[in-house]
Amino acid sequence: MTGAIWNLLLALAWVVLSGDFTGLNLTVGLVFGYITLVLIEPQVEALQGYPARIPRILGFLGFFIKELLMANLKVGFDILTPPWHMKPGVIAMPLDARTELEITMVANLISLTPGTLSLDVSDDRKVLYIHAMFLDDEEELRRNLKEMEYRALELFR
C-alpha cells in the first residue's frame, strides 16, 4: 500500500514539474515512478514486495480480460443460434478464500466471467454456490474456477 502511494506521489511530482497535464504524461510519470521504486527497493524496508506485485496484477488483468471475451463469445453464440447447447446447473465449489474480503473478490470475479454466476455462500463460509451455464464438462469448469480463485488469492497474500 505504501508503495502504491509513493508511486502515485512520484507520478504527480513528475506531472507538476514537467508542466504537461495530460493522461499520457501521467502514465509516463507512473512508469518512471515504478522504475525508481524498483531501484530503491533493497534499501527501503517499507517497499518490500511492492515491485513484484505489479506484474502479477497486470498478468491477472490480461488473463481476466481473455476469459471475459472468450466466454462472452461462447454465451453469445448460444443465444444467437436457435437450438440450446447449454446445460445449466447449480454446483457447489469449496472455497480456499477465508476472510470476507477474499470471498467477496472471488465471488465478484466468478460473477463477471460469463457462464458462471455466484448465487450464495453457505453459512459457515466454506462453499460457494455457483450457477453455471455450460456443465458439459464439469471437471474442466471446476478446474478453471479453481485456477481463477488461485490467481486472485495470489494478489492478496
Binding site: V90, S122, D123, K126
Partner: peptide, 19 residues
C-alpha cells in the same frame, strides 16, 4: 437444468444454508 446442488442444502423455514 442438469443438476442443482443448492436446493438440498437450503432450509426455506430457517433460511439456513448448509455447506
Amino acid at each position: 437444468t442438469v443438476k442443482d446442488e443448492l436446493r438440498p442444502n437450503y432450509d426455506p423455514l430457517t433460511h439456513e444454508l448448509k455447506s
